[in-house]
Design a protein around this nucleic acid. Structure first.
Length: 565
RNA sequence: GCGUCUGUAGCUCAGCAGGAUAGAGCAACGGCCUUCUAAGCCGUAGGCCCUGGGUUCGAAUCCCCGCAGACGCGCCA
């Protein structure tokens, strides 16, 4: 039952107003005393040429026996609607129980594909906290869109192109050896990389060697390519351990180098459209009309650039996946770059350029400045996860020493808390990393929500009752239950908004809200009580529905829900 | 200099496309475990919603001038 629609229909009929117009005006009041829905009548006072409170009074009379509502009030220009709690509870809860893990899902995306470009790790560089946002936002959006029926293609657009790989080969040839790299992986590659830059300051001629090696990679020289592929293998082997821990998956690891031979068509197309002009020796597309600096397509030495490669990738993805949308989850640092290359594709008559979306997010820095591997000012993702896991483990040993599967639970809680906190705030917010913050398990955190889930599970188990059978929903006629049920019923819309706005944090926050409301209910009302089986069943259904929505919500942000903790 | 974004409680943040008394968490202080998981719950305290204009019946929310911070602005990605 869609209460808002019912209200809008009745009112638009009564006052001869547009249905959509009225629908838009209906809102949900902040406080439950003010009803479940409200219509502010101030705007209507102009069209209807009457005072707002008079309009509200009149409407109240016409709507007096509206089905599904227990009360309608006219309060100083507002018309407040109170839904009939029993039918609302029954309807919402049975829908959740019936649909189970599909509650909130939809098929709106059937037949449509979404490409998601996220995480995009650099070869030979470790994952640090700066990579967390892109990784978990991308992963969550992928889950959310899949939940809404879209086919999702996750792409890890590896940073595997550039002179830096020439430098790495130089460093490896001069100071590295196979065994150490095999043993220490990325840490050793990083060490070599830093060593190179130290040495280069003293011996600038190293840069020429690096450029030569990079050229060899591009020309597919076997020796260079072997090393290059090996570095990639070492990197992926290691970062995949972290992805596994986070539960993050990709369908493709097609990186920048994959597009090396796919850029000429882009250049041809831009030339054909007359967009490409020479400027200071480089080939650029002018964007003055759009208040942007020119987009450089080819350097004066003829080499391609970031934008060229991204355009080639977009073309390839469109051709290969025929995406409905293609999302790029990268930091807002790159806002201009994306605006530029989206615009260039639009100017080149690719009408699907409107389906490219830059899902940007804020910067992560350390307390003493921005994160830098080279300057050693960095919090490695691996270390942060490990510490969180340790802390979770300690707490389990302290509070639930008898728990089975301690390790699995510690993983869900520890990793979950890191993922959760990365998805708690709006994407755009900058983050200053602090250990205290990262390892906080109190308040609006994964452990808090997971604990609520475990608590609900525990009560259901302890009751030993089946959810099937007669139910007396009058047991849920109190403010705490209603508030909880209202939050549960909003889940569907929240998921859709989160998708529409590319904002997983909406789900994170909603799940916290549900947990808060359940905990409040839990402390003021006994679930398993002595009144009647039918009433116990109603309360157990409430607990089961809460458990389900929390579980689904957490799942959508990539956090697991242990049954016990 | 120009552009984009951000500015709400001591700290971290919600506040959807304008609506009724601005909400959470952390930190602080005070309570609550012989009853379903105290990783919890309740209470207290804490606000010129950056400043100033404008639009509106109504502005934290929309528009403009500032201020502060982050990021970006031609051959890196």
């Amino acid at each position: 039952m869609d209460y808002k629609k019912i209200i809008a229909q009745k009112i638009s009929q009564a006052k001869d107003l547009g249905l959509d117009e009225v629908f838009e005006m209906i809102e949900v009041p902040q406080k439950s005393e003010m009803g479940d829905f409200a219509l502010p009548c101030f705007k209507l006072s102009r069209t209807l040429r009457k005072a707002p409170n008079q309009i509200a009074d009149e409407l109240k009379e016409t709507l007096i026996d509206l089905d599904g509502f227990s009360k309608i009030e006219s309060v100083s220009g507002y018309l407040n609607f109170f839904v009939d709690k029993q039918s609302f509870s029954k309807q919402t809860l049975s829908e959740i129980i019936k649909n189970g893990e599909q509650y909130g899902a939809s098929d709106e995306g059937a037949g449509k594909t979404i490409c998601l470009d996220y995480s995009s790790v650099n070869v030979a560089k470790p994952l640090h906290m700066g990579h967390l946002s892109t990784t978990v936002i991308g992963n969550s959006l992928r889950k959310i869109y899949s939940f809404l029926g879209y086919k999702c293609v996750g792409i890890n657009h590896l940073g595997d192109y550039g002179t830096q790989f020439g430098t790495l080969i130089v460093a490896y040839e001069k100071w590295g050896n196979k065994d150490t790299v095999e043993k220490d992986g990325i840490a050793e590659l990083t060490r070599l990389y830093i060593k190179y830059h130290d040495e280069e300051e003293k011996h600038p001629e190293l840069a020429d060697e690096a450029r030569t090696w990079f050229k060899k990679i591009e020309d597919k020289d076997p020796q260079a390519l072997d090393l290059f592929n090996w570095f990639q293998e070492i990197t992926l082997k290691e970062v995949n351990q972290t992805y596994d821990l986070l539960g993050v998956k990709f369908d493709y690891y097609t990186g920048e180098s994959f597009y090396t031979d796919k850029m000429q068509p882009v250049v041809d197309k831009l030339t054909e459209c007359g967009l490409l002009v020479e400027d200071q020796g480089a080939q650029v597309v002018r964007l003055d009309d759009y208040d942007m600096p020119p987009c450089i397509i080819l350097r004066k030495d003829g080499a391609s650039l970031y934008a060229t490669r991204d355009m080639a990738a977009a073309l390839y993805r469109k051709k290969t996946f025929d995406f409905h949308k293609c999302l790029y989850v990268t930091a807002y640092q790159q806002d201009l770059h994306f605006r530029q290359f989206f615009k260039v594709l639009e100017l080149a008559d690719y009408n699907w350029s409107k389906d490219l979306v830059h899902v940007n997010y804020g910067m992560v820095s350390m307390e003493d400045g921005s994160m830098s591997t080279r300057q050693g000012r960095v919090a490695l993702l691996k270390d942060v996860l490990e510490k969180a896991l340790e802390k979770a483990s300690d707490i389990i040993n302290e509070k639930s020493p008898e728990l089975e599967d301690k390790e699995a639970v510690a993983r869900m809680v520890g990793v979950g808390s890191i993922v959760f906190s990365a998805l708690k705030n709006n994407r755009i917010k900058d983050i200053t990393f602090s250990w205290d913050n990262a390892l906080n398990f109190d308040g609006e955190t994964a452990p808090y929500v997971q604990y609520t889930h475990a608590r609900a599970t525990s009560v259901i188990e302890k009751s030993g009752m089946s959810l099937e059978g007669e139910v007396d929903y009058s047991a849920l006629e109190n403010e705490d239950a209603t508030a909880l049920i209202t939050a549960l019923s909003a889940f569907k819309e929240i998921v859709q908004s989160a998708a529409r706005r590319y904002e997983p944090s909406m789900i994170t926050r909603h799940v916290v809200e549900i947990a808060q409301k359940f905990n409040k209910y839990y402390f003021d009302h006994r679930i398993i009580d002595t009144d009647s089986e039918e009433k116990n069943r109603a309360r157990l259904i409430l607990a089961a529905a809460t458990k389900q929505v929390i579980k689904t919500g957490l799942e959508l942000i990539g956090v697991e829900s242990p049954n016990k903790m």
